Amino acid sequence: MTDTVSFGYEDVAPAEKTERVGGVFTSVARSYDLMNDAMSGGMHRLWKDRFVRRVKPREGEQILDMAGGTGDIAFRLAAHGAAVTVADINPAMLEVGLERAAKRGIDGLVWTEANAEVLTFPDRYFDAYTIAFGIRNVTDIPQALREAHRVLRRGGRFFCLEFSTTLWPGFKEVYDAYSHRLVPKLGQLLAQDADSYRYLIESIRRFPDMPTFEAMIRDAGFVQTRVEPMLGGLVAIHSGWKI
């Protein structure tokens, strides 16, 4: 890993990024789902539905949902009969997820505090690995991808839902203006935290574009990699297989 990594538009030491990202998600955990609705006009629900359809969870499969603290993806996976382990580095996010699961009467999920870069699960344990809107907050992304590959069984599949860079002319400029000017204000209004949401928007801008991230997935050992852009690439589903 390099001597510095991005924290929004700043370049910081890796340990500092890990600490500061932890602070961001501890701060926003209680308002995270409300802000997702506000920032995307509810579209994040459709993106997640589409994502899970691509994963094609099946009865009895073991699936690791990484950075899945509040449960949004895990609930959808479990509805298809999969055995889901929800892992997140942030205990505040996991606490919110546990409360949401209890309110919905969803049992059977395994909840665990885990760092995507240093998983404690054995080799070749899971049938699928999912991560939604979490990979860009990981300090050492290549290492997290290697860990995803390690814990998957042969024939296992990797799926990542993440923001990227839209290629639609005109839309990119509109979205940039909206996100930089309005999202921090929404964060202040709904979560009393403009700075955390400013970071989350900046982290999207610093995340690798679709071809670069696909190459990173291949470098981790995955084959048959694929990118499915939505809204011209504003959001993308990345996938790959372990053989």
Score class of each variant (00 low, 15 high):
T165M: 05
L152N: 09
C160L: 13
L186C: 05
W168K: 13
G156I: 10
G155W: 00
A194S: 13
D195I: 11
Y125A: 10
S179T: 14
W168P: 04
D140T: 03
W168Y: 12
G170Y: 00
I141Q: 13
P184W: 08
D140N: 14
K172T: 09
A177F: 09
E147Q: 11
R157K: 14
Y199H: 01
Y178W: 07
F163E: 11
R181I: 03
F171R: 00
Y197S: 02
Y175F: 14
R136K: 15
R150L: 04
G156R: 10
V138C: 05
F163P: 03
K185M: 13
D140V: 03
E147S: 06
Y199N: 02
L167C: 11
S196H: 03
Q192C: 06
G155I: 06
L186R: 01
A132T: 04
Q192Y: 03
D195Q: 15
E162S: 07
V151R: 04
V174P: 00
L167N: 14
R136Q: 10
E162Y: 02
D127P: 00
A194C: 06
T139P: 05
D127N: 15
P142T: 03
G156P: 08
H180D: 13
E173P: 00
K185Q: 13
I135W: 08
K172Y: 06
D193I: 00
S196D: 04
L182H: 05
S196Y: 02
T166N: 06
L186S: 03
L182M: 15
H149I: 08
